[in-house]
Nucleic acid binder design. Structure first.
Lengths: 252, 252
DNA sequence: CGCGGCATTGATCCCGGTCAAAGGTCGTGG
DNA sequence: CCACGACCTTTGACCGGGATCAATGCCGCG
């Protein structure tokens, strides 16, 4: 579902943009972020990269600020959110390790970004990053692919916010987090424990609900035997199948 | 706001991926879709492109179908929407001329696409399109840029759906349509008439509301002297400034 | 003229928001 | 190690915006 097709890069060898003396099978992964780039690009990227760490609650940048750097999240969890004049906030997504924090091709940040726990990030000056990007199709394609996945997730979120009742939003959220934290495990595994890196207020701002409604949904799932809540941010999924049934509107 | 920075392609001339005998200042626009590509790519694209027209109400593809073709909308308006098992639908965006209809890098369509009026589109076989894409950074960057804008709009929609009351959603919608149909005119022009290419049901599915709520909002704006409604899908914006005031949650 | 589809308007209901209070959790300092 | 306090979470009571149900109006077309 989140898969991305691979551009046929083998073909490139015979293409005039890649001279024969420069085969592009030297494409490799850059850093831990899942970016693919040529060996040359990796070197160039290393030269301009900076590692940073963020403390819990620290803001990396604000919505509408002019973009100075492109960031990648190496470790931790962040939130990307937008504010309304009356102070209401909406989290557009939770950013996890390997994610691009910002789109390279825009002039201003589309949202504010804040660390939920302590985070480690990679930072690149935008212009220099984009120069490397413009000359390395494999890197460009890799960043493009990550953004395609982000767009698909945004579209799912639009469906959730526009057409799902509160209970479904919360169960969807739990299953989404479970999936992210355990990409390998079968989805029907019982007793899976997940750690919520964010507070109830953040879950509410992500799902377009209030803290109270989120809390009531958690309590209902606990009463119904679908989850345990040993601590507020520790959730044991006792019955993932039934939880999944809560997460989609069924035929009327 | 929807601006996209230009990758410094001048720089490419000296880069090894573009041999000196092949300067890349032959980059030109392909078709009416606002795509930039090298002359060579334009030729290749022309070879594999097909023009098609769609009748009003015609479905181009369904959500989850495997992608066969990449489409660009040349003329008309379409809707991209997702369905829930119980039949509820959410329109993720309205597609207008110049837009990419699908992301090239995914395996399955993320939504269904339907023509609202008669449309004319360009179609490319996905694999062959992606081969050209992979070898033309200027084209890749151009498609990437369009998708960046789409992502930003999706994020705005997330904010709207998550945190705005009905009246704000509708006034936001009217101003958005006005902006799209008259990109040049000053936003304070009075008496601007816009044509809604979609029915109330589509507006409702886009804004996460019901038909009735959308209709009531229109009626309220008419009562308050903000708009005229000579026909159900013809809207005259009488007071764009006051309409704008309706469209954002104000300080409490 | 009459039919069918879309839009508007009205009456009522209910989900989730708001307001308020109590209970938990955790860090800090005695 | 315990006690305090700040903050977060949970729970309850009530309210309101928008959904639902229903009827009427409007317009185009055969």
């Amino acid at each position: 579902m989140d898969m991305v097709t691979s551009i046929n890069t083998e073909h490139s060898r015979t293409h005039r943009y890649l001279p024969p003396d420069r085969p592009n099978n030297d494409i490799r992964q850059f850093g831990v972020s899942g970016l693919m780039a040529t060996l040359k690009s990796c070197t160039l990227l290393s030269d301009i990269a900076n590692s940073r760490t963020l403390a819990a609650g620290e803001t990396l940048f604000w919505e509408d600020d002019p973009i100075q750097h492109i960031y990648f999240l190496v470790d931790g969890t962040m939130k990307a959110y937008k504010l309304l004049p009356n102070g209401r906030s909406q989290i557009t997504r939770f950013i996890t390790s390997g994610d691009i924090i910002t789109s390279p091709l825009t002039n201003n940040y589309a949202y504010s970004a804040e660390a939920l726990g302590s985070c480690s990030i990679l930072q690149f000056p935008q212009k220099r990053f984009n120069n490397i990007l413009a000359n390395d199709p494999s890197l460009l394609k890799s960043v493009f692919g990550k953004q395609s996945i982000e767009l698909q997730q945004a579209q799912k979120q639009i469906l959730l916010l526009g057409r799902m009742p509160a209970i479904e939003r919360v169960s969807n959220f739990l299953l989404e987090i479970a999936q992210r934290q355990n990409p390998k495990t079968t989805r029907f595994e019982a007793g899976l424990v997940i750690t919520l890196p964010m507070a109830r207020a953040d879950i509410a701002d992500y799902l377009g609900l209030t803290i109270e409604t989120v809390s009531r949904a958690f309590s209902k799932f606990r009463r119904d035997g679908l989850i345990d809540l040993p601590r507020p941010n520790l959730v044991r999924l006792r019955d993932q199948t039934r939880l999944r049934e809560q997460s989609a509107s069924h035929a009327s």
